[in-house]
Nucleic acid binder design. Structure first.
Lengths: 265, 265
DNA sequence: CGACCTTTTGATAGTAGTCAAATGAAGTGG
DNA sequence: CCACTTCATTTGACTACTATCAAAAGGTCG
């Protein structure tokens, strides 16, 4: 119960093979797998830098508008100055999945750099402003402004780390906790941007949320009902798209409790 | 049955909300969500460029060696010149998950750029050579060699796209198909690097594979047995770590069949 | 050989998916 | 303004996939 490598067996299996354990035997226990999740550069500062360096073209989008389209030629990256967007991955066989949510300051279109065409659709979930950053112009500007390059790399790096965290949520959490974590994550994103977190408007249907989390719309609905029954969330009087979160910490606690119900020592 | 947006309902739910559908109504059907998955720059050429531009330090690793460690200060990226490695994401609460597999030419450590410390462990799965690319040196070299920067961005972009595909596999495929897709992906990675694909040596235990795919080791074992029973794979005489794949296309077909059993039109 | 893993396979349980029906919202046209 | 249509959501009943528990067999290494 003291070795984290083998203690976690609540859901699925422990990861570390014996071979790996003994191979890394020398340096006993990892010093501090602590991960800092804050941004080195605040979002507002990043946008300011981008704005003055590139004076990007602005585009107003409304709910449902496609910001970029899978399969079309890559030429620009997009930065959300306001609003919310979903990223939808499309497979050749017709499967599609929401693989990400984007908020103010987030970038879109990175997946097009390598292949020369966008790999995902990005769809606005409400009204917002998108900045169009032509990739060649960005690179040119980066040549004279190292800070810009740092910004770009930071954004890509954060995207990679974020995707992995999504992966972990989907793979290690039961359905109810996944929904709780989804809400917590959304609230956290708002908080980082200085917005209210006590009430959030989900701009996705249950089906979209389920698709994002790898579960059915019914399971999402049930999970939300259960969270509401436990008092962790509440619905606005009319319509169930607005979720009130009296205490974000409560959601985090729920995830932890659900994660390791018997891990209370 | 002709509208891909609503046709896919075999597993979980269709993604596209009605609102989104009508909002994007004007441009009828998407032109071609085709995604090109090949590399613009062959892997060998990329390594050659890296080598001559930076003459990176080389490090020989053996199975179980840690290439980089979550939580430690970020200073360098790593490129696999040979061997295989797994990327393990660590959560603050002790959960850990294999979130990626890396082969020759793949980069490691991108997640450290934004936060200043690595977010994942990277563990060698067999003997191999790792190139250490100091990040500051890389940036300096990029300033005079645009090709290097393109390489870097291409690698990060590919990582983002790849993570999303993993996410989609985990979320949209049933257990058996997930394992088949895992094998297919491994074979594809070998093929892109000019290696044999008819026989691959899984360098992970069933527990590790299961952790990666979001299922238990028993389910992985059962899935492999089923694939073997169907003749899609075969085991070497001794030990069940070597998997023979007579026809990679067969695995792809299995995934498709399992994906849409009733989608035969 | 014996200790220790890993893997396989079976039996059982539980979570989440599927099917179905009812309610709730929202928009349309008379 | 109100029927009427349409879609989103909720909830129940049932099913099925996959996790869990357990035992045995196969490998590996001292």
């Amino acid at each position: 119960m003291l070795n984290t490598a083998t203690a976690v067996t609540t859901r699925h299996q422990a990861v570390i093979s014996q071979a790996a354990l003994q191979a890394m035997g020398r340096d006993e226990r990892a010093p501090a797998p602590r991960r800092e999740r804050f941004d080195a550069v605040p979002i507002a500062a990043m946008l300011e830098t981008l704005n003055e360096a590139l004076q990007p073209q602005r585009r107003i989008v409304r709910a449902g508008d496609r910001i970029c389209q899978a399969g079309t030629d890559f030429g620009a990256l997009y930065v959300l100055n306001s609003g919310v967007a979903k990223v939808v991955n499309l497979a050749a066989d017709g499967r599609e999945q929401v693989v990400g949510l984007k908020f103010r300051g987030d970038w879109l279109g990175f997946d097009g750099i390598a292949t020369g065409c966008y790999g995902c659709d990005a769809i606005a979930l409400d009204t917002g402003e998108v900045w169009v950053i032509r990739y060649d112009a960005l690179l040119a500007a980066c040549a004279t402004r190292p800070a810009l390059l740092a910004l770009l790399h930071g954004a890509m790096s954060r995207e990679i780390a974020g995707d992995r965290d999504s992966m972990m949520s989907v793979c290690t959490l039961p359905a109810d906790a996944r929904v709780a974590e989804f809400l917590r994550h959304w609230a956290e994103a708002l908080e980082q941007r200085g917005m209210r977190t006590d009430q959030i408007t989900l701009r996705m249907t249950r089906a979209e949320i389920g698709n994002f989390l790898g579960m059915t719309l019914e399971s999402v609905s049930r999970a939300l009902s259960r969270l509401a029954r436990e008092g962790l969330i509440a619905f606005a009087e009319k319509g169930r798209r607005d979720v009130q979160i009296p205490d974000v910490g409560g959601l985090a606690g729920f995830v932890q409790r659900y994660l390791a119900p018997a891990m209370v020592q």
